[in-house]
Design a protein around this nucleic acid. Structure first.
Lengths: 197, 197
DNA sequence: AACGTAGCGGAGGGATGCCTCCGCTTGCAA
DNA sequence: TTGCAAGCGGAGGCATCCCTCCGCTACGTT
């Protein structure tokens, strides 16, 4: 199972022997660190090093770089889908804004995903689909309710937010401010209940 | 002259012998291509290859990677300064928006700059300063005139726009739309003359 | 306690990048 | 035309990364 994958598949891949699972987990979190720091081009040897594990071990668990990416992101992408479901009973704008905030919060530590999202691998095409399935209705609903501007596609939105995740900020507050600007730009011109500004 | 540099310095560096100047120019434009494609980590050997020049030649003209960056960006950063001056007689919002659009247009083909702008080298600190000197007053003026929201710093603005330059777009129209959203978010809530939406 | 095997680590070959060094080439001044 | 310094190219040493392979280790089972 190397390309299509859904949640259960990811779980099923977790190895069973105790030491193996320990290493697997160490690798995943080392990889998150490394890719967050250096982007998708981060070195696999550094990942192994940081996980305190031989390079051979990394390659047995993740025969290709892509396998490693999959394990990193599949869970999170699905969580994004769940978040969308949970937000369904919020008012349209709050639902959209909440989901987008979650989107940024998620990818900001994982620039590699955003980086890769435009690339053309089967796996990432699936991730894209899953994300779009989750988020697009939220935008549509907000637009239908007249609280999000109508001349914007979900794709536009994702790219805008992806960009936001890609730069470094002086402090978390700045990210919040910048994100606030973007969300505000997304808002329909007349739409009222202006919260905090 | 490897660190501080202003316009004339950059011009002065241009070599005089005909073949040398030819190579220098080929290198600069090859470097623009390569860094636009691969980001700041692009390979110098690829630059030399693409310029049709030996690697030794590259290193004589640009002893360090940074020297190469300087030559690429100094001119452009200064052009950004000049643009700010030219826009000074426009209404506050148009001046700000125009400059920011120019900023994006400029960096979008040169992600490397945005990438490096946060790093801590003397040269890029100078670029930053120059950019801030050019743009900050435009924001201040727009804020004073009540057409740009007041709770935003110029630094916030630059990061937002830097982010926008960092993702790939399906077509130029999309970049325009996304940029439009961002600029709209930057706008003061009540500010009237809504142009195109 | 003993054993079979899943799992481990890292040596090492191939590729690529960085940068230096030095013998050859060539533009141009006289 | 000639001479020579400025300029050129690329071989090669060093570092890093990718990925494979194989002898050793130790987990969990019986």
């Amino acid at each position: 199972m190397t390309s299509s994958g859904s949640a259960s598949a990811n779980l099923a891949r977790r190895p069973k022997r105790a030491d193996a699972r320990r290493n697997y987990e160490a690798l995943v979190s080392a990889a998150q660190e490394v890719f967050a720091e250096h982007g998708a081009a981060g070195s696999l040897e550094e990942v192994a090093r940081r996980a305190g594990v031989g390079i051979g071990t990394l390659y047995r668990h993740f025969p290709t770089r892509r396998d490693l990416f999959e394990s990193l992101y599949l869970d999170e992408v699905e969580a994004l889908g769940r978040t969308a479901a949970e937000l369904a009973d919020q008012p349209p704008w709050e639902a959209l804004a909440g989901w987008l905030r979650r989107f940024v919060e998620y990818t900001v530590t994982k620039r590699a995903l955003a980086e890769e999202l435009s690339h053309d691998s089967e796996f990432f095409r699936n991730c894209r689909t899953e994300i779009y399935t989750a988020g697009e209705p939220l935008l549509a609903r907000a637009q239908a309710a007249g609280v999000a501007r109508a001349d914007v596609s979900f794709d536009d939105t994702v790219r805008l937010l992806s960009g936001i995740t890609k730069v470094q900020y002086a402090d978390p507050g700045q990210l919040d401010r910048v994100l606030g600007i973007a969300l505000d730009g997304l808002r329909a011109p007349g739409s009222a209940d202006n919260p905090d500004r």
